[in-house]
Amino acid sequence: MGTLLDVRSLTTHFVTSAGVVRAVEGVAWDVNAGETVALVGESGCGKSVSALSIMRLVQGPAGRIVDGTILFKGRDLLKLTEEEMRRVRGREIAMIFQEPMTSLNPVLTIGRQLTEGLEIHLGMTPAAARTRAAELLAMVGISDPARRLPQYPHQFSGGMRQRMMIAMALACDPALILADEPTTALDVTIQAQILELMKDLSRRLGVAMLIITHNLGVVARYADRVNVMYAGRIIERGTAREIYGNPRHPYTLGLLGSVPRLDEPRRERLAPIEGQPPDLTRLPPGCAFAPRCGYRVERCLVEVPPLRPLGDGGHVTACWEADRVGSASRGAAELRQATSATRRAVK
């Protein structure tokens, strides 16, 4: 499978009265056809702005993509006219947002919102579009679609609205879906339903997915490859197995260590990452994570570490001290192995 989306040195800034917010700073990543890739990070790390940049939906005049190329099926999206870009949005790349209520039109029926894209993008007749809309609702697990089509979004529950968003995203048979925190607003049992549905559909229909989330559990369950972002940059990338089993950036290690886990014995104390993310208008000269980092050396304060490969499995990390972090994370993994082995033995 070839590269579907290839983002290179993407840089998106927002000019505010407080200064230039460097939301995304020279980021490169890609998505292969049919693959599920995650962008993980905490609020303000630039993961949502990355997705909006791809759709060219960054709010101007404050927000601007100042550099980079976004190659989608070999074409640079940043060079398309607005008219050409409109044909890409929804048709070839679809987007699912966190809060479906704010991205659905409250005064249009469910049916109309589904058929609109089908008629505009695919040139279907209204009758054909209605039949297809009913099929789509059934596909995302909404029962009795004929009765549902004339209803309005407020008559749907949160989980059903998100199913509806997925149906809209799939309507024009896109090659790529960008899902920005698709299940964050949902309860855990509904979250499980929606993620299962998305995974199943993307496999069956061969749609590639970019999942943007802060939830490490969601990523572990669904992503093939993971990009970890911090302060506008990607600081580590690898297969999900590598990122979770052998994290080589102190931030990734810290994130994994700070969440309580149901599969492990309860720890007496959580290990938070001390301090706070930096102000994106005043980034430190060196590594942005250095002020909070336990592995910090002199060099980290003056020189931004580039992404460097670790072995040849595609695992890269932006840390000068990646070797030292590696031995610590191996230690943590062994400890985990040992404790879960004892637990199994006890059971």
């Binding site: 299962e196 572990a220 369950r221 089993g245």
Partner: peptide, 17 residues
């Protein structure tokens, strides 16, 4: 339903939705 931050464990886990 709670996803666990460990891909290997998640792959083995039975899905009860």
């Amino acid at each position: 339903a709670v996803p666990i931050p460990d891909p290997e464990l998640e792959a083995r886990r039975e899905r009860v939705v």
